[in-house]
């Protein structure tokens, strides 16, 4: 299961990398979203996948899932949600001001 999940997150990160390399503002923003998903999956996988028990530790618990990665991912999701929202607004404003969303045309020149 771990192997499969690692490959899954690898594929997602590869897709994200591809999107990062494209020239469109919006696709780069989607790349950010994909990248965060891939990384969150990686956190969950690398800390070990347990089956059959909730992340609750009672006095006589025989098995439990590690709750920390889940807490970490939850926080990271909230952060990446906020950052993505900001990035989308920024992309929209940049598009409005410059009239293009092609990053190649947004390189700028030296004498501004």
């Amino acid at each position: 299961m771990e192997i499969l999940m690692i490959f899954t997150s690898g594929i997602i990160i590869a897709v994200a990398t591809y999107l990062f390399m494209t020239r469109s503002l919006l696709r780069v923003a989607f790349g950010v979203v994909m990248l965060s998903h891939g990384v969150h999956l990686l956190i969950l996988t690398l800390s070990g996948l347990e089956t059959g028990a909730p992340p609750l530790l009672t006095e006589n618990a025989e098995a439990y899932t590690d709750p920390l990665p889940q807490a970490v991912i939850l926080t990271a999701i909230v952060i990446s949600f906020g950052v993505t929202a900001f990035l989308l607004v920024l992309a929209y404003r940049t598009y409005k001001e410059h009239g293009t969303e092609d990053l190649e045309e947004l390189r700028g020149n030296a004498d501004e």
């Binding site: 950010v32 965060s36 990384v39 690398l46 800390s47 920390l68 970490v72 952060i79």
Partner: peptide, 17 residues
């Protein structure tokens, strides 16, 4: 910077693992 942050999380996953 977002890219760097995501890489930070990946490194953190390795270290936690």
């Amino acid at each position: 910077n977002i890219f760097a942050s995501m890489m930070f999380l990946a490194a953190l996953a390795y270290i936690y693992g």
